[in-house]
Amino acid sequence: MNIKTSTAGIIGSGSWATAIAKMLLENVGQINWFFRKTETIESFKELGYNPRYLQSVEFETERINFYNDVDEIVHDSDIIVLAVPSAFLPEILSGLKSDLSTKYFLSGIKGIVTHENLLVVEYLNKYFNVPYENVGVIAGPSHAEEVALEKLSYLTVANIDEPKAARFARLIESSYIFTSTSDDIWGTEYTSVMKNIIAIGAGIAHGLRYGDNFQAVLVSNAIREMKRFVDAVHPITRDIKDSAYLGDLLVTVYSQFSRNRLLGTLIGRGYSVRNAFLDMNMVAEGYYASKSIHEINQNYNVDMPVCEMVHSILYENQQAKKAMIRLTEKLS
């Protein structure tokens, strides 16, 4: 994989995909970019920015090759960056004729493919024969809105082959994006999934008017919960305090930009789950992740009171106030 000569294509058109496009264009001359709607492409070309997300980020559109056919962008790209909600990934990739097994992937998806509870790397390997060493995972605290503003951010790129992780990392690093590497693709993906669930829990606590003192206890318990789970599912030596794990959890729990925290806050204030989604008009990955992690944990029986509290509210119709009171009795 030669970063300087490889052609990168982005599948996704939301805020995170837009932020990734900005990062890529710091390092390569041109990118390929997939949009589902041709009218969005035409508006983008006319305006010079994504008409739906991060409109403050202006692009030189002559440096972008726009696509609305997934097969074409996969065929024309050596490295494919995935930045779509995980629940939509099977639909987007269904019917592909192109061979993905020779492609390189960089996943910006912080979610789980829910129909079989597969991580993105597992999904690509199982259904498209993509070798694990050909998939990089973007981890760490990384809100798209701050990348758009060129706020200093620290990202981790994981790959089972660390030299390849370093080559992937060079695609997105810049004066405002510092990168590090990891060989822990399972741990970084699972914690990226779990932190969204925990952010919903923190949002519920906020909506119920629990204070900062309680939030600190919830988060300190949650990071231990995450460690117990990833150590059970993929037991290797890792430092859960690294920014790829703990940092990503903290920013998702506390940030004003966190969709998952917002979903939880609305539920804590009395919204039904359905009405909270309607009010947000955005995808919160933690909703889907909650069901998947709950089902995966049936095989491991890890003690995860925060995640189980969120699942009971989202999927078992438990009243938020009562579920939170039960949780408070389990925390330390």
Results as ranks from 00 to 15, higher is better:
Ala144Ser: 10
Asn301Ser: 08
Gln30Ile: 14
Leu106Val: 02
Ser15Leu: 02
Thr40Arg: 14
Lys4Tyr: 11
Val283Trp: 05
Ile177Tyr: 06
Asn50Lys: 07
Asn299Glu: 15
Lys151Ser: 03
Phe229Thr: 06
Ile92Ser: 07
Leu24Cys: 10
Leu54Phe: 05
Thr188His: 02
Ala83Gln: 00
Ser255His: 05
Ser258Ala: 09
Pro141Cys: 03
Asn134Phe: 01
Asn221His: 07
Thr114His: 13
Val253Ser: 09
Gly247Tyr: 02
Val306Gly: 01
Phe34Glu: 11
Asp212Ile: 14
Tyr49Leu: 08
Ala144Lys: 05
Ser43Val: 11
Asn125Phe: 06
Ile79Lys: 08
Leu54Cys: 06
Ala199Cys: 02
Phe178Arg: 15
Ser255Ile: 01
Met309Ser: 04
Glu60Thr: 08
Ser272Asp: 12
Leu331Thr: 01
Glu72Cys: 03
Leu47Glu: 13
Ala166Phe: 00
Val57Thr: 08
Gln256Asn: 12
Asp78Ala: 10
Glu308Lys: 11
Lys322His: 12
Ile293Tyr: 00
Leu24Thr: 05
Phe88Asn: 08
Val81His: 07
Asp78His: 13
Leu263His: 04
Val81Met: 03
Gln55Val: 10
Glu62Ala: 12
Glu58Trp: 10
Val251Asn: 04
Arg261Val: 10
Arg209Phe: 03
Glu133Gln: 12
Gly111His: 05
Asn27Gly: 00
Glu42Lys: 11
Gly108Gln: 01
Val193Ser: 08
Ile325Ser: 05
Val120Asn: 03
Glu189Met: 06
Thr38Leu: 13
Leu149Gln: 12
Val113Asn: 01
Asp183Cys: 00
Val57Ser: 06
Leu47Phe: 14
Val84Thr: 15
Ile80Val: 12
Ile10Thr: 08
Lys195Ala: 03
Asn213Cys: 12
Leu250Pro: 06
Arg170Gln: 13
Gly211Tyr: 08
Ser86Ala: 09
Gly48Pro: 07
Met280Glu: 05
Leu118Lys: 11
Asp303Gly: 04
Ser243Leu: 14
Gln55His: 09
Lys45Thr: 08
Ser56His: 13
Ser220Phe: 00
Ile10Phe: 13
Gly201His: 09
Leu278Val: 09
Asp212Ala: 10
Arg274Gln: 15
His143Gly: 08
Lys97Thr: 14
Thr328Gln: 02
Ser292Ile: 07
Phe128Cys: 08
Gly48Trp: 04
Leu331Gln: 01
Thr328Ala: 03
Glu122Cys: 09
Ile41Ser: 00
Thr61Arg: 08
Arg274Tyr: 14
Ala83Asn: 04
Ala320Tyr: 00
Val28Leu: 13
Gln30Arg: 14
Gly211Val: 01
Val251Glu: 02
Val135Tyr: 01
Tyr53Ser: 09
Ala244Asn: 02
Gln319Phe: 07
Lys195Leu: 07
Gly9Asn: 12
Leu24Gly: 01
Glu62Ser: 12
Pro141Thr: 00
Glu189Asp: 02
Arg63Trp: 11
Lys126Arg: 11
Glu162Lys: 06
Thr38Asn: 15
Leu171Met: 06
Asn275Asp: 15
Lys110Gly: 00
Ala199Trp: 02
Ser255Pro: 02
Ile185Cys: 00
Ile64Gly: 04
Gln298Tyr: 15
Thr156Cys: 06
Asn129Glu: 15
Ser290Ala: 06
Lys37Glu: 15
Arg36His: 12
Gly136Thr: 02
Val113His: 05
Val84Trp: 11
Asp71Gln: 03
Ile11Met: 01
Lys37Ser: 13
Glu60Asp: 15
Tyr127Gln: 15
Asp239Tyr: 08
Lys37Gly: 10
Val74His: 03
Thr188Glu: 04
Met309Asp: 03
Ser107Val: 00
